[in-house]
């Protein structure tokens, strides 16, 4: 019967089509995994890995090379251990799988010595993170010892460096620390002591170095404020600004005192030594003013950042309303 055979043909087509489609979908969705050559790389983070999940991308200088396969917490040292599978086909290498693997191992070891480390990076506005391999350490820097228990047999270990977020916090912390260490008291004491000791005071290398340090600190601060436009929390910022303002007041106070005391001192104008001293003081005054201007600028920048953050918190990660296609 012709009817019967067309029915059978259709049925066959249906079943075959279904199976072909099934296999095709499996293939596209990564059944190819079975056939890919992979290497396991492990690392440990001491910071939060919020935003990192199993399946998150692993990239080498922005090129996707694999994915996170496991995230676990090491009970003894509270480190977060992250296992990654790196697909070796992303590294051009001739030869069979074994050759590829040993090539990759060699490459990996030498690059570690060149300063290759891994770091958590933001993948977009979603708060999702990926792990980036890049050269964050200076070449030749001694490799940190891997935490006890890793790498597992056959796996490779890559040390983690703190994410940019932590860098910023650290830089600002250092800056503030340095500002607070300026010996303002000592300076004012010295000025108060006597005008006759002024030249001696002004020649004091301590003040010079202080000013230099203030400059350095404010530069650090500027650097911080530039990088901060990426990630920051408002609360932390407020606290920081409180500290800054406090310090600034101290500096202001110091300057006022300096000016006052300079004015009050009845310096015989005929004494050239004193003129020199006066010049020197003006000079140092300029330098102080300069430093203060910089501090002020920094403060302005921070205030502006705080304002913009409170208006649009998501700009921390997305930047300022830039529309862009994110495609990994």
């Amino acid at each position: 019967m012709a009817n019967d055979s067309t029915q059978k043909i259709k049925l066959g087509l249906f079943v075959t089509g279904g199976i072909v489609l099934f296999v095709a979908i499996l293939f596209f969705l990564g059944m190819t995994d079975i056939f890919t050559n992979k290497a396991t790389v492990q690392t440990c983070f001491s910071e939060s890995v919020q935003g990192l999940t199993v399946g998150s991308a692993v990239k080498y200088r922005g090129v996707p090379i694999g994915s996170v396969t496991k995230i676990s917490i090491r009970v003894p040292d509270k480190l977060v251990q992250v296992d990654m599978a790196v697909e070796l086909r992303h590294f051009v290498s001739a030869g069979d799988h074994g050759q590829q693997r040993s090539d990759f191992r060699n490459f990996f070891r030498s690059e570690l010595e060149q300063g290759m480390r891994c770091r958590l990076e933001y993948a977009g506005i979603t708060g999702m993170r990926y792990i980036d391999f890049d050269y964050y350490a200076t070449p030749g820097e001694t490799l940190p010892e891997p935490p006890a228990g890793i790498p597992d047999a056959g796996a490779l270990y890559i040390p983690a460096v703190p994410s940019p977020f932590r860098d910023i916090l650290k830089a600002i912390g250092t800056s503030l620390d340095r500002i607070s260490r300026i010996r303002f008291e000592e300076i004012s004491d010295g000025l108060e002591r006597s005008l006759s000791e002024l030249s001696g005071l002004l020649a004091d290398p301590a003040l010079k170095s202080t000013i230099a340090r203030i400059n350095e600190a404010s530069e650090n601060l500027e650097l911080g404020s530039r990088t901060i436009s990426r990630v920051f929390s408002e609360e932390r910022l407020n606290r920081l600004m409180g500290l800054l303002e406090e310090d600034l007041e101290k500096v202001n106070h110091l300057t006022e005192q300096l000016i006052n005391e300079t004015r009050e001192a009845k310096i015989p104008e005929s004494t050239s030594a004193f003129r020199d001293a006066s010049n020197a003081i003006t000079f140092s005054q300029d330098e102080l003013a300069n430093t203060l201007t910089k501090l002020n600028q920094t403060l302005d920048a921070l205030t502006e950042l705080a304002d913009s953050l409170s208006e649009d918190p998501s700009s921390i990660v997305s930047g300022k309303k830039k529309q862009q296609f994110q495609m990994e």
């Binding site: 249906f14 079943v15 279904g18 979908i25």
Partner: peptide, 13 residues
């Protein structure tokens, strides 16, 4: 039992 999974795969696609 045979055709529903196949139909589902087709439906997904």
């Amino acid at each position: 039992l045979v055709s529903m999974p196949i139909l589902t795969i087709f439906g997904d696609a």
